[in-house]
Amino acid sequence: MGQEGPSEETEVPVRGEYKTPGGKLVAVEFDVVDGRLHSVQVTGDFFLEPPEALERIAGALEGLPVRQATEELIAKQIRANLDDGVEMVGFSPEAVARAVRRAWS
């Protein structure tokens, strides 16, 4: 079956953004290697405590299959990777997931 749309390998990073209504913007940038997210960077004008949790959010996305990962699954993956006490203000695991889907759809 012929696959329409983007191939599963990127030459330059792809980028998607999502702004939570009444909240903040989150941008996700990544390469796709063998159909999976690679070198993920999560940025934006959101608030996050502690700041080191940013690496846990980006890390949760590493290796996810770009085609199969639904928003729900991506958000679940992020949630599972965060310790208790992490505060995401103005964005959410779901907002990050939407930015990922927008980068690759």
Binding site: K24, A27, T43, G44, D45, F47, P51, G90
Partner: peptide, 30 residues
């Protein structure tokens, strides 16, 4: 802001032309 991408937020060439220093703070936001 602490979590912003430098190149995505700032036109660094334009900042140089205007003699504007670019710094990053420890708080989030824009």
């Amino acid at each position: 802001g602490r979590f912003q991408s430098l190149r995505n937020e700032v036109d660094q060439e334009m900042a140089r032309q205007h003699d504007i220093t670019v710094v990053r703070r420890i708080t989030g936001g824009g």
